[in-house]
C-alpha cells in the first residue's frame, strides 16, 4: 500500500465480498436445493433457505438412485469415479517419472525422438480425436472397463516435463556418489531420486486427481453399462434423461456429492495445489 486510504480499502473489501458471494452462490443454491422435498420445485421460485429433507434426499440419492432418478445409485458411481481418478493419477505419475528418469539420466539413440513423441500428447487432447480413439479402445475390447476408463488418459507430457525439470536441478554429485558406492540405476532411482521428488509427486497428485475425477467426455463415450458410470457423467443422465423436469432435489444432492471430493482436496491441500498448478502449466 502506498497511500493510506481507508475508503479504497473498504471498497476493495466490498468488491471482494461481492465477488466471493458470486463465486459461492451457485454451490450455496445447490446445497439448499438438496435439502428440500420434491414438491418445492413444482412451482414458484427456488428456495434460498434450507429445507427439512436433507437426510432423506441424500439417502435416496446414494442408495436408491435408479428407480427414481434414472441412474444407478450414487454410491456405486462415486466408487467408480474414485477408482478412475486414482488409476489415472497413479498411472500418470508412474509412467512419467520413469520416462523423465530415462531421458535425464541416460544417453541412448533416439532419445530426442522419444521426447518429441511424448511432447505430441500435449497437442492431441481427446476432444479433437474423439471417434478414432473410441474405435481403438473398442477394438482392444476395453469398453466398459476400468482399464478403458483410465489407461488412454494416462500419457502426460506435463508431468514428464515437470519431473525432467526437477531432475535437472538434482546435484550431479549425488549420482556420482551413488555410482562410486556401487549403486545401479534402479537403486539410485528408488533410494535417492524418489525420496527427493516427494513434494513434486504430491503436488502433481493433487492436480491429476482433480483432472481424473472431473473427466466427462471420455467416460461418456466408453461406458454404456451403468455399472461403470462415473458420477460426473451420471449427472448429465439425470438432467436430460427424461421428458419431464429433472428431479432437482436429487440432482442437486448428486451435484454436491460429485463436487465434494475434489473441492475437499483443494481446500485441505491448497499449498500443494497452488504449487502443482503453477509449476505444471508454465
Amino acid at each position: 500500500m502506498v497511500e493510506n486510504d481507508r475508503w479504497g480499502m473498504l471498497l476493495s473489501h466490498l468488491v471482494l465480498i461481492l465477488g466471493v458471494g458470486l463465486v459461492v452462490f451457485p454451490v450455496y443454491v445447490a446445497v439448499i436445493a438438496s435439502t428440500h422435498p420434491p414438491g418445492t420445485f413444482v412451482r414458484g421460485v427456488m428456495p434460498l433457505l434450507p429445507g427439512p429433507n436433507a437426510l432423506e434426499n441424500y439417502r435416496t440419492a446414494i442408495f436408491d438412485g435408479r428407480s427414481v432418478a434414472g441412474t444407478p445409485p450414487i454410491g456405486g458411481m462415486l466408487w467408480n469415479s474414485f477408482v478412475m481418478a486414482m488409476a489415472i493419477t497413479i498411472g500418470k505419475l508412474s509412467i512419467s517419472i520413469l520416462s523423465a528418469f530415462a531421458i535425464v539420466y541416460f544417453r541412448f539413440p533416439f532419445r530426442i525422438f522419444f521426447f518429441w513423441v511424448i511432447f505430441l500428447t500435449l497437442m492431441l487432447p481427446v476432444e479433437v480425436r474423439i471417434v478414432p480413439t473410441f474405435e481403438v479402445v473398442a477394438n482392444l475390447g476395453m469398453l466398459n472397463s476400468f482399464a478403458g476408463l483410465s489407461i488412454p488418459l494416462i500419457a502426460s507430457a506435463t508431468a514428464t516435463f515437470l519431473f525432467r525439470q526437477f531432475f535437472m536441478t538434482v546435484p550431479e554429485e549425488l549420482m556420482e556418489a551413488a555410482r562410486v558406492d556401487g549403486a545401479g540405476p534402479m537403486k539410485f532411482f528408488r533410494d535417492i531420486l524418489l525420496p527427493l521428488s516427494i513434494t513434486n509427486i504430491a503436488a502433481l497428485f493433487v492436480i491429476m486427481f482433480i483432472y481424473g475425477w472431473n473427466q466427462y467426455l471420455w467416460p461418456l463415450l466408453i461406458t454404456t453399462d451403468p455399472e461403470f458410470y462415473t458420477i460426473v457423467m451420471g449427472i448429465q443422465r439425470m438432467v436430460t434423461g427424461g421428458d419431464s423436469e429433472p428431479l432437482w432435489h436429487l440432482v442437486m444432492a448428486t451435484v454436491v456429492l460429485a463436487a465434494l471430493p475434489p473441492v475437499l482436496v483443494i481446500l485441505f491441500m491448497q499449498r500443494l495445489f497452488v504449487k502443482g498448478l503453477t509449476e505444471t502449466e508454465k
Binding site: 508412474s94 509412467i95 512419467s96 520413469l98 520416462s99 528418469f101 530415462a102 531421458i103 541416460f106 522419444f114 513423441v117 511424448i118 505430441l120 500428447t121 492431441l124 480425436r129 478414432p132 480413439t133 474405435e135 481403438v136 479402445v137 482392444l140 489407461i151 488412454p152 494416462i154 500419457a155 514428464t160
Partner: peptide, 16 residues
C-alpha cells in the same frame, strides 16, 4: 523405462 509412456502415446494418441 520409456516403454509404458511411449506405448500409451502411440496406441491412444498418435495412432487415432
Amino acid at each position: 523405462l520409456l516403454a509404458p509412456q511411449v506405448l500409451v502415446t502411440l496406441i491412444f494418441f498418435i495412432w487415432p
